[in-house]
Design a protein around this nucleic acid. Structure first.
Length: 354
DNA sequence: AGCATTTGACCTGC
DNA sequence: GCAGGTCAAATGCT
């Protein structure tokens, strides 16, 4: 048993190291201004490498344990009246909601830009409520995944403007996406020409916010995104609901397409990558230099529910990009330790994908 | 017509 | 009892 674990662990480490090497190569290729194709290929290889690693993690470190179900097939597939049929079921649902992973991002928006909406994180959201919050100047908007009833996706998010700075939206994500939205978008992007697709995308999220009004009259900034300052500043999650993510956001439509291909064809076919709400952890220092919110994620690493990582480790992982981003020049820095691996990613997306 | 948003009511946890 | 979160009927938009 232990020997099996050792072997699996070695395989896991070797996969991670391979990923690191590939990432280094990618960095080199970027520096050499090599072709987009080469970069895409490397990026895809990195994804594959980490897919394997994650798969190994699922098989090895936690085997023997009963795998917790991510979500029941479609607990919300019916309206409240049906849910209320059984009191215990309803309580379970609330309990489940409460224990869902939760994290917050701050998104800066400004008027000049015509870029994607502030919460354009690659998922389709439907607003289901808005509420005045005590002590907040602006109402809080509640969004759920558009595919909730079709695919039983329980992801939700709350969007709240900060009192101090109305141009900053605090977006709190809850639960992960179990829908296959990304691949759907990929299909859409392949069908529509890129400009049309981009336009549609903008429509989706921009409309979500344009009706949000402040309680007090105040000159509001439009909800278009200029530089998207995104910071994962909170991670409220249980041990069994941990899934650190990494991604290489992109601003180019070209790349989005590649990204979708990578996602739809490789990752989305894997259970463990089902899809997660936190789009990425983005390094952010100055408005001009940080990564923008990509409508899609190029590379998105997740660990399954039952991955056990301490909260401190998580914090470390999640905050790593921010610290790395202090360098004026975006850099790719991937640290890997056999005993306690830390992952640090920092990309200048413009440099990477232009 | 179909889908999204609004908004008051309802539910739960503290 | 209060505040936050969600539901669902009404309404609006395309």
């Amino acid at each position: 048993m232990e020997k099996t674990m050792d072997l699996e662990q070695k395989n896991l480490i070797s996969e991670l190291i391979q990923g690191k090497e590939l990432a280094k190569q990618l960095k080199r290729q970027i520096e050499l201004c090599s072709s987009q194709e080469t970069r895409d290929l490397l990026a895809a290889q990195i994804v594959l490498s980490y897919e394997k690693a994650i798969s190994l993690l699922n098989q090895s470190a936690f085997h023997g344990e009963t795998k917790p179900t991510i979500e029941s097939p479609s607990p919300f597939g019916s309206p409240r009246s049906e849910i209320c049929d059984q009191d215990s079921d309803q309580k379970d649902i609330f309990k489940k909601r409460k224990t869902m992973p939760r994290w917050t991002e701050k998104v800066k928006v400004c008027s000049e830009s015509g870029l994607d909406g502030p919460t354009d994180d690659g998922y389709c959201w439907r607003k289901y409520g808005q509420k005045d919050i005590l002590g907040a100047n602006y109402p809080r908007s509640y969004y759920r995944c558009t595919h909730r009833y079709v695919q039983g996706c329980l992801a939700t998010k709350l969007v709240q403007r900060l009192n101090e700075d109305a141009s900053i939206l605090e977006v709190t994500y809850r639960g992960r996406h179990t829908c296959r939205q990304s691949s759907h978008l990929a299909t859409a992007s392949a069908t529509l020409n890129k400009q049309e697709f981009k336009q549609k995308e903008n429509e989706i999220t921009f409309r979500q916010h344009e009706k949000e009004k402040p309680k007090q009259p105040q000159k509001m900034l439009s909800d278009n995104v200029a530089g998207l300052k995104v910071k994962t500043e909170d991670l409220d999650t249980r041990e069994d609901d941990i899934f650190p993510l990494f991604s290489f956001p992109s601003t180019s439509t070209e790349c989005e397409y590649v990204e979708n291909q990578i996602f739809s064809e490789s990752m989305m076919e894997n259970n463990f990558m089902g899809s997660f709400s936190p789009p990425f952890i983005s390094p952010a220092t100055s408005e001009s230099n940080y990564l923008s919110v990509s409508p899609f994620r190029l590379i998105n690493f997740g660990l399954r529910d039952n991955v056990q990582i301490s909260e401190s480790e998580l914090t470390e992982i999640l905050s790593a990009p921010t610290s790395v981003a202090n360098s004026p020049i975006g850099d790719l820095d991937f640290q890997l330790n056999e005993d306690d691996f830390q992952l640090n990613f920092s990309f200048d997306n413009h440099e990477l994908f232009s």
